[in-house]
């Protein structure tokens, strides 16, 4: 049996510009029922029907898990990406009917933690919006450190400070404010869990320092959905379905398969969940791996690829699909 998520038919109930880069979208069910309950850190995959092409991007749910009348996501505009965020910003208006996936949580709180230490960078704040709501309602012990470029781009910083006061600490790049990370990590009580969400560079920095300071890997949680990167077109043979397809410049391998009627399972489409892992039957060329799922060994072996985010550059590629 294959895995994957059930779909939800929703309507856009509100579109709210938050600042120069970020817009918030509200969804309700078309049938008027409540949406499924979710847990802090969960995401949904939003289907964007843009004339003849469909994009599917994951976004963290940022509302309170206690309120399931609507789901909210925040989307940061990316002017050089593949167009998903631009579609959301330009085309999605209140009243538009859309399809989203059931919530899936790949960035779940460890509820055993005696304290939750959260580090957010930029739009990486969104999963923490839901997690702090969940923890605050249950009297949980948390502390949030949030780095943003400027005060005006500090998405939801005001809301968070209003809700949680001194439990939220802000750092502004333009004021040269920096987290004293080593000091922060060295002063946490035993039983603390660390959560990081933000740009790849920040995640790597925090994970490296935590490891060097003796934090066991089980206590360090991070989420980084890789956005599929555009690249040179390439051809792929799908051995099981007997098809040969071309992956376009602005298309991911997974999207190209889907366009050809081949549907590998997926949960995140961001190189994290592992669902669409695909075996390579033969290849002549170079893999461009962009996922966080396969081990380095797998990457080197050339035997596996994550079609949601990874590409290929070479003469031929045959996949077991």
């Amino acid at each position: 049996m294959s895995t994957g998520t059930t779909k939800l038919d929703v309507v856009v109930s509100d579109v709210v510009p938050v600042n120069d880069l970020v817009t918030r979208f509200h969804f309700r069910r078309r049938d008027g029922e409540l949406l499924p309950t979710f847990s802090g850190g969960a995401h949904v995959v939003v289907e964007m029907r843009d004339s003849d092409r469909t994009r599917l991007n994951p976004y963290s749910l940022m509302g309170s898990p206690l309120d399931t009348r609507e789901y909210t996501i925040s989307v940061r505009r990316d002017d050089v990406g593949r167009g998903g965020s631009l579609f959301m910003h330009r085309q999605v208006k209140p009243g538009l009917e859309m399809v989203i996936s059931y919530p899936v949580n790949l960035f779940s709180l460890d509820l055993r933690a005696k304290k939750h230490l959260m580090l957010a960078g930029g739009i990486g704040i969104t999963p923490f919006m839901a997690q702090t709501s969940q923890l605050a309602a249950a009297g949980g012990n948390f502390e949030l450190h949030y780095t943003c470029r400027t005060a005006s781009l500090g998405t939801y910083a005001d809301v968070l400070q209003q809700r949680y006061g001194s439990r939220v600490k802000l750092y502004h790049d333009d004021r040269e404010e920096r987290i004293d990370l080593d000091r922060l990590l060295s002063s946490q009580p035993l039983g603390t869990h660390l959560y990081v969400c933000g740009p790849a560079g920040m995640i790597n920095w925090v994970r490296d320092r935590a490891a060097a300071l003796g934090w066991p890997s089980e206590t360090v949680h991070f989420e980084h959905f890789a956005a599929p990167q555009p690249g040179a077109p390439f051809d792929v043979t799908l051995a099981v379905s007997g098809k040969t397809i071309r992956v376009g410049e602005q298309q991911s391998l997974l999207e190209a398969m889907e366009a050809a009627g081949v549907d590998p399972p997926y949960l995140c489409r961001g190189g994290v969940c592992g669902q669409c892992e695909t075996n390579v039957i033969s290849s002549d060329g170079k893999f461009i791996h962009n996922d966080h799922w396969l081990s380095e060994e797998d990457h080197r072996s050339g035997c596996k690829i994550m079609p949601c985010v990874s590409r290929f550059d070479g003469k031929s590629l045959v996949l077991e699909r």
């Binding site: 002063s187 946490q188 009580p189 035993l190 003796g214 934090w215």
Partner: peptide, 10 residues
């Protein structure tokens, strides 16, 4: 000792 310890203790 464990009550007073910080993360990073191995």
């Amino acid at each position: 000792t464990l009550t007073n310890a910080h993360m990073g203790l191995r």
